[in-house]
Nucleic acid binder design. Structure first.
Lengths: 214, 214
DNA sequence: GTCATATTTGACGAGATCATCAGATTTGCG
DNA sequence: CGCAAATCTGATGATCTCGTCAAATATGAC
């Protein structure tokens, strides 16, 4: 445990991390707007004044959570879909993995949902990947949509709504497959193809990706 | 203009109506959470104290706007789809009409979007109709989905996302048709059928339905 | 016109949230 | 240990928001 002797920096960093983690928890639980700075410092078990040693305002710390979350999701999607060639399967795997994780890790799900309501996280994190896959798929003829922009946003909105259903505990166990099947149909696959692709086994990667990097 | 001599009641009702209208405007503009009671009374051009003559709290007046909006949308859908038999066409007409109205009446669009974020208006107003149509369509074999609940929520989420796109000014002019086409595919129509049904002329009913009843 | 009742009005006190800052605590160094 | 720098801390004053209430205004009956 040879600690680098710079305890100041590490203590500072630890406090900051506690604040960010507390903010993540509170946003997931009740949304950013109704979260008070004092609640954050209480949850982080840190003096109220400490907050301002690290962040200028609530918006600033929310921005930090936001950036962290966007980066984490982008990385997760990257890792998940790297080994898949078929654009249709890529989309199915991404959507299924999000729906499944909403079930296995509700805190993560609520965080994503709440951050999307206020800041469009999904658009920021998944959007670019989805757009690229969609474009590739359309170019190759594998996918076929009347309008790429509409399809992109419709997919995103549908995903969030299904995640919401899962978080409310009102979704069937195989919600991920059913949702993916619907998205694939939206993207122009016929019913049989959609049925098949939505049920291909996911790349093995049960639950290693933590909610937070670092 | 023989006024019924009960001016008191009418004056009272007028003030209440001004408050509700102002609240609608402000929710559309900035959401319910960040709307202050004083803002409402200012927008309504009414004394601050008047608010409490009519509503106990901000939540109470938001509830009123909510109930009004849900009722208005349900009525609009009723009127729009009454004369349509094909369940697929009903769904297409409903979704197209919402997307189109978001473009022609952005205040209405934003109101619906913001109220759905906080109170799930769409679920409450469109949900029952959509669920019923879906069930009928599936029973008759016209529609075919892997899971009705998932499909229902996915449709709703997609609609909201597309409305959002329209409100941001980033949607193509025929967004309504493209979106409806996607929804029909989701519901099991093949590409050609979806293409055709999404383009059937809407029932003639340009823009009579006001945002508010009464 | 006068009075009783209904309604509106804005100033006020109570409470919540914010941002600051001087003092306390921890760390690094000799 | 003793001192200086870095970090943490919570009390404090400023600002915002709320809900109340006594006074002002409008209406209706006589």
């Amino acid at each position: 445990m040879a600690d680098a002797p710079d305890r100041h920096a590490r203590r500072r960093e630890a406090t900051r991390a506690k604040l960010v983690a507390a903010t993540r928890t509170l946003i997931a639980r009740q949304g950013a707007d109704s979260t008070r700075i004092q609640e954050i410092t209480d949850e982080a078990d840190v003096g109220f004044g400490s907050f301002y040693n690290h962040f200028e305002s609530k918006d600033a710390i929310v921005e930090a959570v936001l950036a962290e979350t966007i980066a984490a999701q982008a990385a997760a999607i990257d890792a998940l879909t790297a080994a898949i060639d078929d654009p249709a399967e890529v989309v199915a795997a991404a959507h299924r993995s999000f729906v499944r994780r909403a079930r296995s890790d509700p805190d993560w799900g609520w965080l994503l949902l709440r951050l999307d309501m206020s800041h469009g996280v999904l658009r920021a994190s998944l959007g670019p990947y989805a757009q690229s896959d969609l474009r590739v798929g359309v170019a190759s003829g594998r996918l076929q949509v009347p309008d790429e922009t509409i399809a992109l946003y419709a997919m995103g909105g549908a995903l969030l709504a299904v995640m919401r259903l899962v978080l409310d505990g009102a979704a069937p166990p195989d919600a991920d497959v059913h949702h993916a099947e619907g998205v694939l149909r939206l993207l122009g696959l016929d019913r049989d193809e959609a049925h098949e692709v939505a049920r291909r086994p996911l790349p093995t990667r049960p639950a290693p990706t933590p909610a937070t990097p670092r």
